[in-house]
Write a protein that binds this DNA or RNA. Sequence first.
DNA 1: GACATAAAAGACATATTTATCCTTTTTAAA
DNA 2: TTTAAAAAGGATAAATATGTCTTTTATGTC
Lengths: 144, 144
Amino acid sequence: MFSKSCKYGLRSVIFIAGQAGENKKVSLTAVASGIDSPQAFTAKILQQLTKSSIVNSTKGPYGGFFIRKEDLETILLSDVVSVFDGDSVYTGCGLGLSKCDAKSPCPLHDKFITIRANIKVMLNSSLAAILNSEAEENLMFLKR
Amino acid sequence: MFSKSCKYGLRSVIFIAGQAGENKKVSLTAVASGIDSPQAFTAKILQQLTKSSIVNSTKGPYGGFFIRKEDLETILLSDVVSVFDGDSVYTGCGLGLSKCDAKSPCPLHDKFITIRANIKVMLNSSLAAILNSEAEENLMFLKR
DNA sequence: GACATAAAAGACATATTTATCCTTTTTAAA
DNA sequence: TTTAAAAAGGATAAATATGTCTTTTATGTC
């Protein structure tokens, strides 16, 4: 469904969103151990997230990564996914055909429409929605 | 969603199912051109499909690949997918967590339930169902 | 049996993804 | 202003996926 990078990205963002605000930042080490991912690779993931300004960061002592509370409403999971996997998740043909569309559908075209619609709905969730709906507890379960 | 190998595999199987029976076989060349895939790589794909006895083959002159008409009812798309991508598509956690389940759900667990259910339904289609529902015409569109 | 045909098998080659390590830059505190 | 902490950036390595090429094996025809 998603690339490994994308999964790390999603877990990172959800973890940071649940932990850190402008006052309380989390370090790379904290994120990597919080989502149980390889630290050096997670550093690269976080760089991509900060470059696309989904996550904020500050260097130096007491620095780290964070997401402002007011941004939790506007950041969507789809924003994170598109950083790592582009829009292939919602747009590509399930069988890999570039010419597949409503006029020249592949044999699975209609069945994929439903699935893509569901994925779109899911990824349209804001971070705030994820954090609320999950009643805090499930944030414990970001480890593999 | 699916690996490239898996997509080639699905396209191959649908193509062969629509073209060939025990009396009329199709060659590697025909399959590769029929689904617009690299020939040498498609050879490997077809080898995997014959080894897992989803597709039959005979060597030598007038040989080739085929699927028996009576097998079209029993071969499911999920059989093909599992050869190439295993069962991660339906069973794995969307965030890549191995310990994610109803008891220890990841923050997206519930949202994935619907999606996985739809995927399961889609992949539960038999080759016969695909060929019928698509009224023959869509088999023209197996090229990329 | 000799020959041609076509898939099977094995050895490589390339590309992409995932992962690590080392150096540089920024920042806060002493 | 020196020092330490932490992210950013760059180079490289390892693993996996994708793709090609050559040889071998099986099979039908003559």
